[in-house]
Design a binder for these strands. Sequence first.
DNA 1: GCATGTTATTAGGGTACCTAATTAGATGGC
DNA 2: GCCATCTAATTAGGTACCCTAATAACATGC
Lengths: 158, 158
Amino acid sequence: MQSKTSPEDPAPSPTSDSVPSELGQRLPLIMSRLGRSLRHAYSPIGVNLGQFPVLTSLLDRPGATVSELATKERVKLPSMTAVITQMESDGLVIKAGDAEDRRCVRVALTEHGRELALAARAARVAWFAARLNHLSRSEVAAISRALGALEHLVEIDS
Amino acid sequence: MQSKTSPEDPAPSPTSDSVPSELGQRLPLIMSRLGRSLRHAYSPIGVNLGQFPVLTSLLDRPGATVSELATKERVKLPSMTAVITQMESDGLVIKAGDAEDRRCVRVALTEHGRELALAARAARVAWFAARLNHLSRSEVAAISRALGALEHLVEIDS
DNA sequence: GCATGTTATTAGGGTACCTAATTAGATGGC
DNA sequence: GCCATCTAATTAGGTACCCTAATAACATGC
C-alpha cells in the first residue's frame, strides 16, 4: 500500500513516527465498527447500551454518585441522570441521599440489579468468547497484552 | 498497580481459560468509553460519526456500492442510504448507476469530498497522537501490535 | 415469461446523546 | 447572620444515529 519500509518487515519499529499515524487511522475505525457489532449483543440480555457499563461499575463501586458515573462513562450529567432514572424505575438500582453532602445522590444496585449485572456480564463474556474462537492464539495474546494500555488511553481526559 | 511482570507475578498464561473472560469484561467497556470520547472529536472537523468511515472507505475503494459500505460499517442498508443521501446533498459524494447491474448505485467522492476526507483523517490522527503522547513507548507498541488482531476481530460476522 | 432473489429507497419509530435553564445545597468572605 | 458564588442533580427541548417493515426496480433461473 503506502509502503516505505522494507517489504519483509511485517511490523515497523515502535519508535517510528508512522506508528501514531497508523493508530490514528485504524483504531477509531475499529472502535466504531466493533461498537456497532456490540450494540446488537446487548438487547438479548435485556440491558441496553447505556445501562450495562453502569451495572458493572456499581458491582465494583457501590454507592457511586451520579457525577462519578457520568465522568467514568464519558457522558454528561443529564445523560447519566436519565440512565439512572430509567434503571430505578426498572428496579435495578436505588438512589439514596448522602448524609454529609445532601446535594449528592448515591446509587446502589438492588438485589435484582445485582443478579442482572452478573447475568449480563456472563452473557457478554460468552458472546465475546465465541468471537475470540475465530482468532489465533497469538492474536488473542496480542489483544490481551494491549488491554492495560487501552484502558490507560481511555482514562486520558483530553 | 499491576503494571509490571515480576517473576512471581500470577499473570495467567495466554492459554488460560481466564483470558477470554478478561477480554470479554474489559474490552467492551473500553470500546464504549473510547467511542464516546471519539464522538467529541468529530464535530470540530465538520464531519459526523456516520460520515467519517464512509469518507475514508471511499478514499481506498472508489465506486463502492451502498450495500458494500453498509456491510463494511456494520449498519443496515437503509441506514447507509440515509448517510449517503445526506453526503450527496452536502456535495461530498456523487451517486452513479452501474451500467451492468442497474440495481446498484456506485458512490464516489467529489473533489470537495476528497479534500474533506483527507483533512478529516489528518485532524483525527492529530487528535489521536495528542492522546498517545500520554502513553509510554511500550504501551503504544502494545496497542500497535494488537491492531491486526482487532481488525480481524471486527471482520467476524457473528 | 413468471417466480424468486437482490439492491436500494421510503416511512415511521426508538435510543442515546447533547445544551441551556432551574432547583437545592455547600462554602467562603464580611 | 447573610449574601455571592460554586457544585450536584434534574428538567425541558432538540439532534444524531440506527432499526424494522413495506415498496419499487432490476436480475436470474426454470
